[in-house]
Simulated scan of single mutants.
Amino acid sequence: MNIIADTHTHTIASTHAYSTLQEMIHASAQRKLYAIAITDHGRSMPGAPGQWYFENMKVIPRFMEGVLVLRGQETNIIDTDGNIDLEPDCVGKLDWIVASIHEEAFRCENPTVEAVTNAWMNITKNPQVHVIGHSGTKEYEYDFETVIPEFGRTGKLVELNEGSFIGRKKSIPNCKKIMELCKKHSVPIILNSDSHISATVGCFEHSLELLKELDFPEELVVNASVDRFHAYLKEYSVVKNDPVFQSKSWRAK
């Protein structure tokens, strides 16, 4: 399986990451990726960039080194009602939104399965969100059987996060359960590196191994095909309104 896009990455603008935006894009070009999304953390994460950083992402060329660049954010789910910290002035301006739960930003003293399920169910109603970020985190388990079909029904891509195999190992059994349910319910997924340094952009070794173990259907992996990836962008992302996207050159590779 050939993964053509990495749509969850961080730059030094997220101050616990270690490579510049251009270094991340260069790495994606070296690995012959079709696209990369730059998704630095929303404001509730300690060390996150400010609002102007996201508002000014419009200056980033749509293509750099032959790679399609999506301007995005990893927004934080901040409560059990599924509210997120995406700045109102950024709504409709960013191409790609990953929604995740992080301990540093999630305001819930007792994250029960019911409470976290409610948060994710409300996220399914948010048209700004494209990707369900690393939702296998053990501390924030939810009713997978109930919620995952809703992710599919509402066009949310369920992420298999390569970083979870390295930094969130306790979540691996949940990641496997989630992938099994995505297969069962034909819910599209996306493989992402969650890279915080250019050396790991486009690296999906553990994720691909899990999909192979599960005999996961390639047609459900949105970023395993340029055409499937295009189709998703055309249906759900604001990129479709970009003049460059509408031109013949957007399919540069």
Rank of each mutant, 00 (worst) to 15 (best):
I4T: 09
H8G: 02
T9S: 07
A13I: 02
S19A: 13
M24K: 03
A27K: 12
A27R: 13
R31F: 01
A35V: 09
I36G: 01
T39A: 05
S44C: 11
G47R: 13
Q51T: 14
V67M: 04
G72F: 08
Q73T: 10
N83G: 02
G92W: 13
A99C: 07
I101Q: 07
E104P: 00
E109M: 10
N118C: 12
W120Q: 07
M121A: 09
N122W: 11
N122Y: 12
N126T: 11
I132E: 00
T137F: 11
F144Q: 11
E145L: 08
V147A: 12
P149L: 09
E150Q: 15
K156T: 06
G163F: 10
G167L: 08
G167R: 15
K170Y: 09
S171F: 08
I172R: 10
L181Q: 10
K183N: 10
S186P: 00
V187L: 06
S193C: 04
S195A: 15
S195H: 03
S198W: 12
A199P: 00
C203V: 15
F204P: 04
H206D: 08
F216E: 02
D227H: 14
Y232Q: 04
E235L: 12
Y236I: 01
Q246N: 13
W250F: 15
K253W: 13
